[in-house]
């Protein structure tokens, strides 16, 4: 027996690492309010554009009011944080932006929105995309035609124009009704909701269509299974690997889309923070005489490593769902 078989987990250390990294990013995103970080909008003009340094590791001056609109969970976490750390906070270890805000803190808070976008997209892909594709592929005929035509139409929409158009409309509306506090982020989520599941639906449909011709589907029908249980017990398990692969492609795509829109000022807006917003602000801080590389480097790094880890993990999930690739049997 080879060493590979006795230690299946060590086969791919990079996968374990990717998983841990993603868990870390996820935990940070959820628990940011608990961490002893500066408030993301705490302005210290006297410290503006300070490069990364360990000069000040710890200092006082936490301003809870500088956290905009915390939800009930965040409020609890903030209270807990104050109970533990008082008003102490980490210094601007990764430098500060043009208003002297701590980049480390803003990166951590930005992870929330960036990951939320990915999460929403994967939920929509999984629920709408998989069901849509599975039902279309399994039904075939007219149902399939109609369902896939809808997907084609949504695919063909000129998204950027629609976003620009709707954002413009929304800004006009906001000027007339400032009291309604509309947030541009709605547009972003609406677009993600309308489009993030399309690729998934197409791929699942193709896979199901080819499954429909296999003999074990006939065997399942001969064994008395209902359509629903064939979908659940034969179709879904057989599309799971491709669903996971598609998901690991969809999430990064949607997160990039968010970053892109936010970078253009069409997505997440200040004072909210996402990694795309941070990149934008880093870009804005660039001048011919003064290059604050860290303001672009760190958001970019956070983004790139998260996307990379997702890809690595996608492979691992796919292998784990395929009994043919599990090495630990017999």
């Amino acid at each position: 027996m080879s060493r590979r078989e006795t230690k299946p987990l060590n086969r791919a250390p990079h996968r374990t690492f990717a998983a841990r990294f993603l868990v870390l990013v996820g935990v940070v995103a959820v628990l940011v309010p608990l961490l002893p970080l500066a408030a993301p909008s705490e302005v210290r003009l006297e410290e503006k554009l300070a490069p990364p340094s360990f000069g000040t590791l710890w200092r006082d001056g936490f301003e809870p009011d500088r956290i905009r609109d915390p939800g009930p969970l965040s409020r609890v976490l903030i209270d807990a944080r104050i109970a533990v750390f008082g008003d102490g906070q980490l210094g601007p270890l990764l430098g500060t932006d043009a208003l002297g805000r701590c980049l480390l803190s803003r990166l951590a808070w930005g992870a929330r929105l960036s990951l939320a976008v990915g999460l929403v997209a994967s939920a929509i892909s999984l629920i709408i995309g998989v069901l849509w594709g599975a039902v279309a592929g399994y039904s075939g005929g007219r149902v399939d035609d109609i369902m896939m035509r809808i997907v084609d139409i949504l695919y063909a929409l000129p998204l950027m124009f629609i976003v620009i158009f709707v954002v413009a409309l929304l800004r006009g509306f906001r000027n007339e009704h400032p009291e309604l506090e509309t947030n541009q982020i709605i547009v972003l989520f609406a677009v993600i909701g309308a489009t993030s599941w399309l690729t998934m639906a197409r791929i699942v449909r193709g896979q199901v269509l080819s499954l429909r011709g296999t003999e074990f589907m006939d065997a399942a029908r001969a064994a008395g299974s209902t359509n629903l249980s064939i979908l659940r017990r034969h179709v879904l398990p057989n599309v799971t690997p491709i669903v996971l692969v598609t998901l690991t492609l969809t999430i990064p795509r949607v997160m990039l889309f968010e970053a892109f829109l936010s970078f253009l000022g069409l997505g997440v807006e200040a004072p909210d923070v996402s990694w795309g917003v941070l990149a934008r602000q880093g870009f804005d801080a660039l001048t011919a005489v003064h290059v604050s590389a860290w303001l672009i480097l760190f958001p970019g790094l956070a983004f790139a490593s998260t996307l990379l880890a997702m890809n690595v993990l996608g492979d691992r999930l796919r292998d784990a769902t395929d009994p043919r690739l599990r090495g630990d049997r017999r």
Binding site: T214, E215, A219, A220, R233
Partner: peptide, 8 residues
């Protein structure tokens, strides 16, 4: 072909 590869 007549057994689902993913069903025990």
């Amino acid at each position: 072909a007549s057994l689902d590869p993913r069903m025990s």
